[in-house]
Design a protein around this nucleic acid. Structure first.
Lengths: 383, 383
DNA sequence: CGCGTTTTGTTCGAGTCTGATCATTTATGA
DNA sequence: TCATAAATGATCAGACTCGAACAAAACGCG
């Protein structure tokens, strides 16, 4: 017989399965193939290719056409054979906390996963890159994960290293409440995050409309969202022409529990000195503690000091109830799963998506009503 | 060998199924097609197109009209299937062009709308706020619109005014390829846009990897996407430590057609003077014209001058074919409709979504291969 | 080493897609 | 209203593709 030298680089003949793999590869690369062309390329007869095509068509992996095959098309109504590809995927999810903030994110993710017929495996982690990686690795090792939703620690060189590692994983990755930095170019990481800066701005504008003209910010830089909140506060202050320099901007990060009361006293002192009548307090829990402290010290809320919290986890528990910015936590989880499901379904033809969500401002007692003690200077030019 | 001589850019002939898909795509993009036009475009006889149209009409996917076909219309009572079209909602869509860029966005939107069982009404407009508003108003007046997808002109005070007006409309609004400005606070406008800055950066980094060390930018500031492209170019240059000051950055906005050749000469002159060996050219069409000009003047592409275009509308037509950044136009339309559908379904409990999509870099001949004439100074430290 | 099974190749008649011609129908303008 | 030009569909022919039947080779196995 004529020693059919496959035009293929390897002079070796392929097994039928490999051949069909190659066929699908060509198909994905070019969108369509001709029986003749592929037969020549793989060094087999056309009939063989036809048989392969028939086989693949029966599985719904290609659409048969006269002279070749194309990617499955909706116009091809031979696909009467229901949907055997009930191939449900498993998604791993690694979050930095299982008590605060994240339960709602997980809940939203779970609901959407059920909708999309996906399985979700959640793992808690610490707020630190090394442990993030450990947890992800554990998921990859023990479970059969098709995709990963993760909220990693991104600070420092370890954080960047972790990001690169995630980016190089063979499965799709979606960040939740984290943004892949723009400087890092080739990132195929997708993400969904709340626009915390917008939320902080909303709070500041609300306080301004209530008549406050000195608005401070009490933050806790140990959280990844803090920088965004502070940035939003700054931007809003600038937009409202309030000088940031003279405003209270304290950070409670490095305090032990023992020092907390002292620190709050210090903050109240500062407020009195600068005439600040309103505070945006990052992290709800801190806001609750601060309001408690104010009440203890006889500082009226909101009369002497208006408070808006951030996160809205426990703000409603305080007395008086605290107004708070509420990130759409459920939706963060939901969108993360949607992104993942779409990515798994559509493959890499789908462009990288990045989604920002706006938070909501929940008004309660702690910020409603004009300040009792008007600040210095101009006032009552409300709106 | 195929007997036919397709007029298609790719010398490949299409299978019937692909042909019908192309037909549906054109249909979704323009709302209607002529048998003659499509036959010419696909390089087949008119009879063949007629047969395709008949076939698609039998499935209810198109409405036959004399001389061509349109999207299925309720007025066409040939619908043997008798499927109640059950248009849950109607969406208005106003885009600034029906010839360039936007047909593909519309096509993606239409395909998704079909999926979601929505009706889409498209109107073309001029690139100017007043006409944008007129077209939107016309849609609101004459049709029963439940939502609006629009790509308005946002420049100047008129643009801001238009945005405020859109924001105040009683129906949900999604911007396509536009971003609501952050300064404007209470915006409930949602949007989906391509990250053009990322695209430009991708192009610059590609040219850098090919060995270019002086990379210019030829822009056309009359387009809304130009600022983003230029910003991306700047950022990438900064990241690669290429001084922007000495680099070519020209703008062809205010030139008449007559001056074009002169301007291109001027640009080439500048490149020679500064040692620039690669250019990112905004708007594909301009890139094609520029490459043509280079060839006419004996400037080798990519040998003397590497080119990357932006938009990838006509880049493949040039000789040599031009590498280009391709925004995910279909997906912009698709995501816009998804956002709208979700908004209509979920109401205002749903948080405001904002989506960014990454473009893709399509490599062709015009940018591949190291520069023949090395730039001044350091070189060949190619990664 | 020989056998059966599986996979691949060849031949050839039937089937399918495409294009050309021409009579008929339809849209458009005077 | 009629006339003209264009679009349409039927029919036929040519080229190509498809699938069945049979033949040959490769592989697994005892």
């Amino acid at each position: 017989m004529s020693p059919e030298q496959p035009a293929e680089g390897t002079g070796k003949s392929l097994f039928s399965l490999q051949r069909r793999e190659r066929l699908m590869e060509e198909l994905r690369a070019h969108g369509a193939i001709t029986v003749r062309g592929i037969a020549a390329k793989l060094g087999v007869s056309e009939l063989t290719i036809r048989r392969d095509v028939n086989l693949l068509a029966d599985e719904g992996l290609v659409s048969r056409v006269h002279g070749g095959a194309t990617l499955p098309s909706p116009l091809d109504r031979s696909g009467a054979a229901g949907r055997p590809p009930q191939h449900s995927y498993s998604i791993g999810m690694v979050v930095p906390s299982l008590d605060y903030y994240w339960p709602q994110v997980i809940s939203g993710a779970r609901a959407e996963a059920e909708e999309q017929n996906l399985r979700i495996l959640v793992r808690g982690s610490a707020y630190d890159a090394a442990d993030n990686r450990r947890q992800v690795q554990a998921l990859l090792d023990t479970q059969n994960i098709d995709g990963l939703i993760v909220a990693p620690d991104m600070t420092g060189e370890r954080g960047q290293e972790l990001l690169r590692w995630l980016n190089a994983l063979p499965i799709p990755v979606v960040l939740a409440e984290r943004r892949s930095p723009v400087e890092n170019p080739a990132h195929r990481l997708e993400w969904v995050a709340t626009d915390h800066a917008f939320g902080a701005g909303m709070a500041v504008r609300h306080l301004w409309q209530e008549g406050h003209r000195k608005i401070g910010c009490l933050a806790d830089s140990s959280s990844p969202t803090t920088p965004h909140v502070v940035r939003g506060w700054r931007q809003a202050m600038a937009a409202l022409k309030i000088p940031v320099e003279g405003s209270v901007h304290e950070d409670s990060a490095k305090l032990d529990n023992g020092d907390r009361a002292a620190h709050f006293d210090h903050v109240l002192e500062l407020c009195k000195k600068t005439g600040t009548t309103a505070l945006l307090v990052h992290s709800d829990t801190q806001a609750v503690a601060f309001v408690q402290h104010c009440v203890d010290k006889g500082v009226q809320v909101p009369g002497d000091m208006a408070i808006v919290g951030y996160d809205d986890e426990v703000a409603y528990l305080a007395e008086p109830a605290i107004s708070a910015v509420r990130p759409p936590k459920q939706y963060v989880g939901k969108v993360a799963v949607q992104l993942m499901a779409a990515r798994l379904a559509e493959g890499r033809m789908r462009p990288v998506h990045r989604v920002e969500l706006n938070p909501e401002l929940i008004l309660r007692e702690s910020s409603i009503g004009a300040p009792r003690v008007p600040a210095t200077g101009v006032l009552q030019e409300s709106l």
